[in-house]
Write a protein that binds this DNA or RNA. Structure first.
Lengths: 314, 314
DNA sequence: GGCAGTTCTGCTCATATGAGCAGTCGGTGC
DNA sequence: GCACCGACTGCTCATATGAGCAGAACTGCC
């Protein structure tokens, strides 16, 4: 296509998309046949001169979703558009909304849903509508957040999801990480705790997020780990955590001793679920998102456009 | 339109614009009739959820051009798109290119073109192609820039335009502003200078830019005015200069004494031209652009999208 | 200059889309 | 309970658009 044609295709595109003229009218204006105009428009599109964006908080990017399914072997992918997003919080909210939508539309409806906790999960629970399901029981799959100053976020998440879904919540009454292995083993052998974990193993679907391995981690905020602990994990290759367990970029446990003191489903147990929905958004989580997807921890990913593109160009 | 329909229209838009499905196929996917799909798409457009941008350095914004003509009484307006522009320089270049395109396409071809000088005009001269016209004579309409360190820019502008247009340049051999009124009158009574000005008065078209009234002014750079002079002009209400003459927001001369020492066409003489093309781009020139358009100094405006929108919401 | 391969052009025809209209539904006021 | 109004639905029909094709024009090569 020569320079003249390129310019003509821009003129044609202006008249077509901004002035809503027909290709025939454009032909008359530019002294071209309407077929030529059609071809110029096709070329303008094909060369990427025309950008069409859907500006809406609920807008998704279907082509990117398809690529994630095809190139990353996911069973499903939900990618929210970041067009017109001004803050990281807004992006997080959009992603949580999309996750809530996905859960609501899920067929068959899971009878038991295993969930982790954290800011993302809490937000999803808030975006779910009452009646999003009928009779969904929610069970926690990893140890809770009792030390957190916003106490009860973990419990509130599971309870809200269950209530709005017309079912019951089963909480895992245990810290996330114990100081001593013996304590952890004692807790897990407790009848109640063991029962919850057993229930969690049998869940129809898992819903979890992932945290970045940096000082903003909830484990630091909750007092389970110190800044120094996290620095050490990062040195060992940690990119983030999933259900409280720190993984490297291949999805392997970084620190087996620490992992042994962590209460809840192990990554192997998690991987045995047939439907494993990860919800991960935001720049800081790009590395964990990559690890989670590459290592097959999730079968379904809900994420934002930038994160999805990051996963695809790796 | 209720919430459900809004969401549906977004889903439909995704399938239509991103997946290139037909409205019929979308209907099957979403369990709607194809007419409903068509209506949803129409509403999505109408509510502004669909944004179509033309990404190209030569792209223009025709609807804004139309509004400028209709609401600001311009004979013509050229508005370059700022979609995908990263720097002020790039925007300036796009605008200059558009001005060059406009000149090239101008019919009837002017036999004599009166031009001012400055960065914008120089850039236009560089963007013009050899042979853009056949036999256009170019005449300077205001005093030159001999004190400038980049000496000869003003002359180079006029000469390049004339050469590429197959005609001759007539330069105005005079400073822009004289220190004493007597000197200015002496210069203007010089046979050569008087002849050039006479020629300028008879030009078929004028092409000029405008400068902001701030310390970045070319008059300061060229040594005709000091920082203090400009501060004083601003205090008196100056928003910028056109052909070397400082105007307020109504387009009136701010300082008649200074104006009397300025060589070249007066604003009244400029206004008598039938075709007066102003090329003004960039954030810092919004106030002058406003004054130029409101006071009818130009009949045609070449500008950028942001400046145009500024003119329209005043 | 002539020839083969390629691109470009203007067409026909099938399909996709938008305008306009009559029937239907759901709510409202009496 | 019923007549009325307005909004919505599914249609017909006219128009706009894209696919595909045959001939024209142009290119490089001998």
């Amino acid at each position: 296509m020569d320079e003249t044609d390129e310019l003509l295709s821009i003129r044609a595109a202006e008249l077509y998309y901004e002035e809503n003229k027909t290709q025939d009218e454009i032909g008359q204006a530019l002294r071209l046949t309407r077929w030529k105009v059609g071809r110029l428009l096709a070329q303008a599109k094909q060369r990427g001169f025309i950008r069409i964006e859907i500006l809406h908080p609920r807008a998704r990017r279907l082509p990117i979703e398809r690529r994630l399914r095809e190139e990353r072997g996911l069973d499903d992918a939900i990618v929210v558009s970041s067009a017109g997003v001004s803050s990281a919080d807004e992006l997080q909210a959009r992603t949580a909304q999309a996750a809530a939508d996905y859960l609501t539309a899920l067929r068959p409806v899971p009878r038991t849903l295993g969930v982790s906790w954290g800011r993302t999960l809490f937000e999803i629970s808030q975006h779910l509508r009452s009646g999003w399901a009928t009779g969904v029981n929610v069970v926690q799959i990893n140890g809770g957040v009792s030390l957190n100053r916003r106490a009860g976020t973990a419990a509130a998440t599971a309870v809200a999801m269950a209530q709005k879904g017309g079912g019951n919540a089963t909480l895992l009454p245990s810290p996330a990480i114990l100081e001593h292995l013996a304590t952890k083993e004692a807790i897990e052998s407790d009848r109640v705790v063991a029962g919850v974990i057993e229930l969690a193993r049998s869940a129809d679907a898992y819903l979890f997020s992932a945290g970045p391995a940096d000082h903003s981690s909830v484990h630091i905020e909750s007092g389970y780990l110190t800044d120094a602990d996290v620095d050490l994990l990062v040195q060992k290759g940690a990119v983030g955590d999933v259900v409280g367990r720190y993984i490297d970029s291949d999805g392997n446990i970084v620190d087996p001793a620490l992992d042994a003191r962590t209460v809840g489903l192990t990554l192997e147990e998690l991987r045995e679920g047939r439907l494993r929905i990860a919800v991960i958004a935001g720049q800081s989580k790009h590395p964990v998102a990559d690890a989670v997807v590459r290592s097959g921890l999730c079968s379904v990913l809900v994420t934002d456009e930038a994160t999805a593109l990051h996963l695809l160009d790796g």
